[in-house]
Design a protein around this nucleic acid. Structure first.
Lengths: 219, 219
DNA sequence: CTCATTTTTAATCAAATGTTTAATAAAATT
DNA sequence: AATTTTATTAAACATTTGATTAAAAATGAG
């Protein structure tokens, strides 16, 4: 027996295959729309093995959800808490770092928002995202910028809604855009990719942002 | 017997109650997460009546989906195709008209995007949203504005992603924002409501938009 | 009132689905 | 090699769930 870290280290295949199949299906079809049999089939394992490794569909889902949320927030957190960069450099970095993450997992945003909405029991509470945000370097720098008049008075949430919204919304709306416009997927993807450069300039212009004099510290 | 318009006119209660309960539950929990028994209970009817009126869960869902999509696009379409307004007036009108619709059905956007993604069979094709968009007054005016240099060269889809994204994204992200920030629902709602006025100015500033000389026609 | 039609209900069906069991194979331990 | 533990499988179980049926109640027409 021993601790399970050993088992994982030796042969990640089975458990890892289940996790990967589960992630793909849960993200694509949601919790209620995913059948455990489909996960088993996609992972190439026997159905009972799923319960052997994860005890229940719900626990497996919880694991996938947790890891997805962590990847999503770790991505933005690393940028927002970087003490070495200026506020504008952070704004420049956000669309890029999300473009990287969402290139790998394009359905993550819609998955997270849907399932957070559906699932009444709050999966996010124990993660203290609130504290992480409240103490972020970004927030400090943002407040400085407002105090110094480099940005007009506005609620930080408004600003983040604009920045993150402009970045993430295309991934959420993609299925609808494809129906409404006559763009093939490739063209649409490259339009979305272009936004990586465009969003920071749009954001800066929208909020009359004046470049700081390069020193990163924000107090 | 007779035509069914009579039945509806006489007593909208049963069929209408089913529709209303179905809309609420489908929008909140999605197709796969909704039980026909829960719809019946919410509507205060016997389960078999659901099938009596709508033949199947899938057909009932299809009906709800269609009506939701129609409300969503009718809202924006009425604005984008108004020959009496200038381009900037349209930009000013979009956040407002969505605020009205989404105040009544806040979960509509997440519902639509989720279900369009999940459901492989394309519900939207027969509606010709593509044509509606392509021939819109908005698009004509937008192209004029670009041609006359009032807006820098950019793909109309980029512009709409920004405008609609800034408007709708807060409704999509609301469950997550509430976890990440310490805002109570009321405060968050009023922040979102404020955006109605803010978004047009942000959009105009972001894209260096210069006001047209009031005549609405766009050619 | 009588009879036909429409609406509603309780009971049931059949398939789907999350989970468990009991047996077997593989691996590890002694 | 013997034995214990871990991994895997096929089969079955117990519920859930969408749908149907057959009968009853309500409604309306003649």
């Amino acid at each position: 027996m021993e601790n399970e870290s050993k088992r994982k280290a030796e042969d990640p295949s089975t458990e890892a295959r289940i996790l990967e199949a589960a992630r793909m299906l849960f993200q694509r079809k949601g919790y209620a729309g995913t059948r455990t049999r489909d996960i088993a089939k996609a992972a190439g394992i026997n159905l009972a093995l799923l319960n052997y490794y994860f005890r229940s569909k719900e626990r497996l889902f919880h694991r996938i959800m947790l890891e997805s949320v962590q990847r999503f927030f770790q991505t933005i957190q690393a940028v927002l808490n970087d003490e070495e960069t200026t506020l504008f450099q952070k704004i420049e970095a956000i669309p890029g770092c999300y473009a990287d993450l969402l290139a790998r997992e394009p359905e993550m945003p819609l998955f997270l928002l849907s399932e957070i909405r559906h699932n009444p029991d709050n999966i996010l509470e124990p993660m203290d995202l609130r504290g992480m945000m409240a103490r972020s370097c970004f927030l400090r720098q943002f407040r400085s910028a407002v105090a110094e008049g480099r940005i007009p008075e506005m609620h930080p949430v408004q600003f983040l809604l604009n920045l993150v919204g402009m970045t993430v919304f295309p991934y959420l709306a993609k299925p609808m855009i494809q129906v409404v416009t006559s763009l093939d997927e490739q063209t649409l993807d490259s339009l979305i990719r272009e936004r990586r450069q465009l969003i920071p300039t749009w954001i800066a212009a929208a909020h009359g942002f004046r470049q700081e004099k390069d020193s990163p510290g924000g107090g």
